[in-house]
Design a protein around this nucleic acid. Structure first.
Length: 794
DNA sequence: ATAACGTATCGCCAC
DNA sequence: GATACGTTAT
């Protein structure tokens, strides 16, 4: 092949690749083609980072490093070259054979690891990979840190003295376990709360400090020494229960790598490319994990935004992103600053707010999108009015043609959701609340999970303790304490003691109850091990044997039916899991999935309802209209952050995340007074609202929306005026029950406050309300909800 | 010894 | 406002 030919082929190849990824901007393409070596992508909100990640993987799988390579594998025959040129001209997709010819060092998909933050993001990644790469896309390892580590640990669990089906403890289990440890060591919760102990231990694990080392470091510090003892006890109990907590998953994987060169070597060779999303939210241990894995290949790509780092409270360190270039010499850095999501107004507001932070890399997002509406900053009287205000806007805009699913309400803390929810229910606005009490956090569901865990692994003491007397089996605290003590004394696990209760003098009295219980668990364990029964059937059998549902029904609990429904709902969850995983399905597998589930994972954007969640959960999502209630000092920023500059910066980043979720419209709402933790507080509007340039805002106050009440004065309303106006304000918006009596039908002539006179064309009942189609004399035909359109019949 | 009842406490964000 | 604990009734 002549030099000339080679050059021509390389040139053509570049053209083809650029064409293949032509839907992206040049910066994004740069990231897609920068395949080898460390790469840091600083991706602002809405700059298309998921697209970049997915396409980068697709490029690696299909073309390898062809874009930057000067190598030419073989001279393609002229027929193929002609065909490629034709495709370039017409924009037709490239034949697969052409990809093969052009590719240099393409990478099999299973050699690529992509780590995301939530399962939802991982699934989205998998879906987009499948649509881009077909079946090959499914072979990419795309999951969260925790599931990736769990997967690796199960393979080599024996090296660490765990079984391959070890249990994963979530924070509730950890909490229970820590309380047991405190009890065992006689450490008063008032001196060292289980919370502070757990958080200390979590930090220690993040720094890769084990219990013994921690105790050594404690020295003369009495408190640290006690925590060290708790730490040691906690870990030894976890080990005995064949269980790991969330932090252990990362910690133990790193230990596994450090102590077993062959294992590390295997994974270093196996994964040629590693990609990490949301890198700003990784902690030290996660950084170490990624660093170890990529040491050989050096092909590490991390994507993140220092301005969106909102998990420092749980150990994420912004250092990881700020010092990436130092840690990985010759790292390539690419900034994505074009935003495709929001209007100019929203983006300017976000930029203005985040500019007040000191500690950041600094970047300014821009967009080609239109300026859009001004940001609505509204001051309402109290939290009920705030909720009513939001409900009112939603109804107005739905009447004007928006869908309920266009709206999101993002709040700082879950406890804010109640008032909002009540207002929505009252106005029959379909809505879903994410977070708060998750399905899998409900007591009865946790009980069922505990049963399944114990059936799977009877040495799981924490779960065993949870269910031993639930439903009531007349096994009391004293008996349990005695049994636990015996177990510790003879070095066997609790289950063994229960099973052989007759042999132990102190347990004589309750021996039968204990052995009955143990036998029941063991029977089901045998059935599980036989492997002939489906998980759903095993679960049904378990319900029958334990009599849990009957006990619930007899309990007289007013929510009994709900709880029974939840217990039964778990059957569907098991069936679904089995369907999705086929032969791979296993009880430990199911339990792992459940343990690593985040509530955002259940978010399904397809149903037409308003979604409510915390600002944290909303990271990575976008909505046409976003409401941010509680935009007040003391709520957001939260009271605990106000006197701490670094926490204020984190809150401000959260504000930045929240604001940039909005595509078209943003509403900042605050309340002049609010009931919080049982007492009424009067909060100033949030400093973050003050940081937005005035010209971007459209400020309104509650009394301006309605007919101004004569006693309402524009500045600092007294408590009296406030309550009076608040009442009339609330009443004006509260029409659901009263007004629905007024029925409209086709042919009626009506008057609307803003649209004027019109005639009802059709009336379709919808839930508690009626959807009206009205032809207005002036403003054309509109669809309105009868109860909220404030129509007058003529 | 166990269960039911009443009282004190404490609140965010999440894998 | 729920949940964890301590107290009392069986």
């Amino acid at each position: 092949m002549t030099d000339w030919n080679q050059e021509k082929i390389i040139g053509l190849r570049k053209k083809v690749l650029e064409h293949e990824f032509s839907r992206m901007n040049s910066r994004q393409r740069e990231a897609v083609f920068a395949v080898n070596g460390p790469l840091l992508v600083l991706a602002g909100a809405g700059s298309g980072k998921t697209t970049v990640l997915v396409n980068r993987i697709a490029n690696i799988v299909r073309f390898g490093d062809a874009y930057h390579s000067s190598e030419v594998k073989q001279e393609p025959d002229t027929g193929l070259l002609d065909e490629i040129s034709r495709c370039l001209e017409t924009g037709a997709p490239l034949p697969e054979s052409a990809c093969d010819t052009l590719a240099i060092n393409p990478c099999p998909p299973w050699k690529i690891m992509s780590i995301t933050f939530t399962n939802k993001a991982a699934n989205e990644m998998k879906e987009r990979l499948s649509s881009l790469l077909g079946k090959r896309g499914e072979e990419v390892w795309a999951s969260t840190f925790h599931s990736t580590c769990a997967r690796m640990l199960r393979r080599s669990a024996d090296r660490l003295g765990f079984s391959s089906h070890f249990a994963i403890y979530d924070s509730d289990d950890s909490k229970r376990l820590m309380k047991e440890c405190q009890k065992a060591l006689g450490i008063d919760d008032k001196k060292i709360s289980y919370k502070s102990a757990l958080s200390e231990i979590s930090h220690a694990k993040d720094a890769m400090i084990g219990p013994e080392e921690y105790l050594r470091d404690a020295g003369n510090d009495e408190r640290a020494a006690k925590i060290g003892l708790l730490y040691r006890q906690y870990q030894s109990r976890l080990k005995n229960a064949d269980a790991m907590d969330f932090d252990d998953l990362i910690f133990n994987t790193i230990r596994l790598f450090q102590k077993n060169a062959d294992v590390l070597d295997y994974y270093q060779n196996r994964f040629r490319y590693i990609l990490v999303d949301e890198y700003q939210d990784t902690n030290r241990a996660q950084y170490l994990f990624v660093k170890l894995l990529s040491e050989k290949s050096r092909n590490l790509c991390v994507v993140g935004d220092d301005d969106q780092s909102i998990y420092q409270f749980r150990g994420a360190t912004i250092e990881n992103i700020l010092s990436f270039e130092k840690t990985f010499p010759n790292a390539h850095v690419i900034r994505l600053e074009q935003n495709y999501r929001s209007t100019k107004t929203i983006l300017s507001a976000a930029n203005a707010v985040i500019a007040n932070n000191e500690n950041r890399k600094g970047k300014t997002l821009w967009t080609e999108n239109p300026a859009g509406k001004k940001i609505d900053a509204h001051v309402s009287f109290n939290e009920q009015d705030e909720a009513a205000y939001i409900a009112g806007i939603i109804l107005d805009e739905v009447s004007a043609g928006r869908h309920f699913s266009d709206f999101a309400v993002l709040y700082r803390m879950n406890s804010q959701s109640n008032t909002l929810e009540r207002a929505f229910t009252k106005s029959s606005i379909p809505h879903r609340v994410l977070g708060g009490l998750r399905f899998f956090d409900r007591k009865e569901v946790r009980d069922m999970i505990a049963y399944l865990s114990v059936i799977c692994n009877p040495s799981d003491e924490i779960r065993l303790l949870r269910i031993i007397n639930c439903p009531k089996r007349a096994i009391g605290d004293k008996t349990v304490a005695a049994a636990t003590q015996i177990a510790a004394g003879i070095g066997e696990n609790l289950f063994y003691v229960l099973k052989h209760a007759e042999e132990f003098q102190p347990l004589q009295r309750s021996a039968k109850k204990l052995t009955d219980f143990a036998n029941m668990i063991q029977d089901m364990n045998s059935i599980l091990l036989e492997g002939k029964t489906s998980l759903a059937d095993l679960y049904r059998l378990m319900l029958k044997k334990t009599g849990y549902v009957e006990a619930l029904a007899a309990s007289g609990d007013e929510n009994a039916q709900d709880r029974i429904d939840n217990v039964n709902e778990l059957t569907s969850s098991l069936i679904q899991y089995e369907e999705e995983n086929g032969d791979e399905a296993s009880l430990p597998g199911y339990l792992e999935e459940v343990a690593l589930l985040a509530d955002i994972d259940n978010y399904d954007s397809s149903s037409d309802s308003v979604v409510m969640m915390t600002m944290h959960s909303a990271k990575g999502l976008e909505f046409p209209v976003v409401f941010l209630p509680g935009f007040e000092e003391g709520i957001f920023p939260g009271i605990q952050a106000i006197f701490n500059p670094s926490q204020i910066e984190e809150e401000r980043r959260l504000a930045y995340v929240a604001i940039t979720r909005a595509k078209e419209e943003l509403h900042l709402v605050c309340a002049g007074s609010r009931m919080i933790f049982g007492s009424t507080q009067r909060n100033q509007p949030s400093r973050f609202a003050e940081e937005i340039p005035k010209e971007l805002l459209e400020v309104s106050r509650a009394y301006e929306r309605k007919t101004p009440a004569p006693e309402a004065r524009p500045s600092a309303p007294s408590y009296r005026t406030h309550s009076a106006v608040s009442h009339s304000f609330g009443a004006a918006w509260k029409p659901a029950a009263e007004k629905s009596a007024e029925k409209f039908r086709a042919g009626d002539t009506v008057i609307h406050k803003t649209f004027g006179r019109g005639m009802v064309l059709s009336a379709v009942p919808m839930g508690n309300d009626t959807l009206l189609e009205i032809a207005f004399d002036q403003s054309g035909t509109k669809k309105l909800m009868a109860n909220y359109a404030r129509l007058q019949k003529k």
